[in-house]
Amino acid sequence: MKGVLLVNLGSPESPTPKDVKPYLDEFLMDKYVIDVPYLLRALLVRGIILQTRPKKSAAAYAKIWWDEGSPLVVISQRMQKKVQAQSTIPVALAMRYGTMSILKGLQELNDKGVNEVLLFPLYPQHAMASTTTILVLAEELRAKHFPEMKFTIVPAFYNKPSYIKALANSIKTHLDTFDYDHVLFSYHGIPKRHIRKTDITKSHCTIDGSCCNTPSPAHEFCYRHQCYETTKQVVHYLGIPEGKYSQTFQSRLAGDKWLTPYTDVEVNKMPEQGIKKLAVVTPAFVSDCLETLEEIAMEANHEFKVHGGEEFMAIPCMNDGEEWCETVADWIKDWAERK
């Protein structure tokens, strides 16, 4: 019997330091997130970051928390229910970090008699710290607990026409109501070394502005290329003129060389460049979360206006939008009907 496991990032149980700390520990101690030797990672995370970060992060979570719980979890649950309603096979939901674990999701499917699982990381672009860590952990759990189970992996769908259409249409509904000067495509940042580590050719990725536009097998797993390709295709679909859009990367840890340009730096410069009405899109996420609701819709919004901006629109992710849920359900149907 076939079934599906949708997997998103996860969330602390509550916006309190007590619950945020173990969540951050699990997340930051992941060797695919902070990819340094274990002892150094433990020193950095448990000796430095977790001494102050939980309180700060809890305050940020508190600003965006809903009555029903974590926005990311609530939105993902709504999406899962809509997709399940359009599917003839079981569709379960799990999170990479937190209590809604991948183990629980696989167990739920196993209890329903599922032995063929479509493993579906909810990330359009491939990255070590998102896709890879899900796939590695899921395989470890399968081998240990469900050896008879078989996986089919949903690859990065950053350029899949139906995804681009759903994303672009979702963005369009908001741009149609906003007389923007500029559209910023802001993607989650990752260290530059992650790009080189995922280069299967071991030679293509130079991160110099040209490699992402030069065809290569490396692009199958290159987060940077996939982000630029998503932007390119959405811009083409929507007919956004050259010069009226740009791309940046948000969120970073100090001490590393991360993908540039940085969202906060660029947003702060825009008003003096004549950009007074800014729309921001976050296509690395399919569900709104801390990075979109607090970092963009609140912090970037505030800083943009402090620096002279007038109007700011944080365009929501696709979330549980009808077209997006129908698209996912169609992908599931195509897989379920294969012999």
Score class of each variant (00 low, 15 high):
residue 4 V to G: 00
residue 10 G to T: 09
residue 12 P to N: 07
residue 21 K to V: 06
residue 23 Y to Q: 00
residue 25 D to K: 10
residue 38 Y to T: 11
residue 39 L to S: 08
residue 41 R to N: 02
residue 44 L to D: 01
residue 46 R to H: 10
residue 51 Q to W: 11
residue 51 Q to G: 11
residue 57 S to V: 13
residue 57 S to Q: 12
residue 60 A to N: 14
residue 68 E to F: 05
residue 77 Q to E: 15
residue 79 M to P: 04
residue 85 A to F: 02
residue 90 P to A: 00
residue 90 P to W: 01
residue 91 V to C: 04
residue 94 A to N: 02
residue 95 M to I: 04
residue 96 R to M: 01
residue 96 R to E: 01
residue 100 M to G: 09
residue 100 M to Y: 13
residue 101 S to W: 05
residue 101 S to E: 02
residue 102 I to E: 00
residue 105 G to A: 02
residue 106 L to C: 00
residue 107 Q to I: 07
residue 110 N to H: 15
residue 112 K to F: 10
residue 116 E to N: 08
residue 119 L to P: 04
residue 119 L to V: 01
residue 121 P to I: 01
residue 123 Y to F: 10
residue 124 P to Q: 06
residue 125 Q to Y: 06
residue 126 H to N: 12
residue 130 S to K: 02
residue 133 T to M: 01
residue 143 A to K: 12
residue 148 E to Q: 10
residue 149 M to F: 05
residue 153 I to S: 13
residue 154 V to A: 14
residue 156 A to N: 09
residue 157 F to R: 15
residue 159 N to H: 11
residue 162 S to P: 09
residue 163 Y to G: 05
residue 164 I to F: 09
residue 167 L to R: 11
residue 169 N to L: 09
residue 170 S to A: 10
residue 172 K to T: 12
residue 173 T to G: 11
residue 177 T to F: 05
residue 180 Y to R: 00
residue 180 Y to H: 05
residue 181 D to T: 00
residue 182 H to M: 02
residue 182 H to E: 03
residue 185 F to T: 03
residue 188 H to Q: 07
residue 192 K to I: 07
residue 194 H to P: 05
residue 200 I to A: 09
residue 201 T to E: 14
residue 203 S to N: 14
residue 210 S to G: 11
residue 213 N to V: 05
residue 216 S to M: 03
residue 224 R to M: 12
residue 227 C to Y: 04
residue 229 E to L: 09
residue 230 T to S: 06
residue 231 T to N: 07
residue 232 K to N: 12
residue 235 V to W: 02
residue 238 L to H: 06
residue 239 G to C: 11
residue 241 P to E: 11
residue 244 K to Y: 03
residue 244 K to R: 14
residue 248 T to Y: 12
residue 254 A to Y: 14
residue 262 Y to T: 13
residue 267 V to I: 15
residue 267 V to F: 13
residue 269 K to H: 14
residue 278 L to C: 04
residue 280 V to D: 12
residue 284 A to S: 15
residue 286 V to E: 10
residue 287 S to E: 07
residue 288 D to I: 04
residue 293 L to W: 07
residue 294 E to C: 07
residue 294 E to A: 08
residue 296 I to G: 06
residue 296 I to P: 04
residue 299 E to R: 15
residue 301 N to G: 06
residue 303 E to C: 08
residue 308 G to F: 10
residue 308 G to C: 10
residue 324 W to N: 05
residue 325 C to K: 15
residue 327 T to D: 10
residue 327 T to L: 09
residue 329 A to I: 09
residue 333 K to V: 13
residue 338 R to I: 15
residue 338 R to E: 15
residue 339 K to S: 13
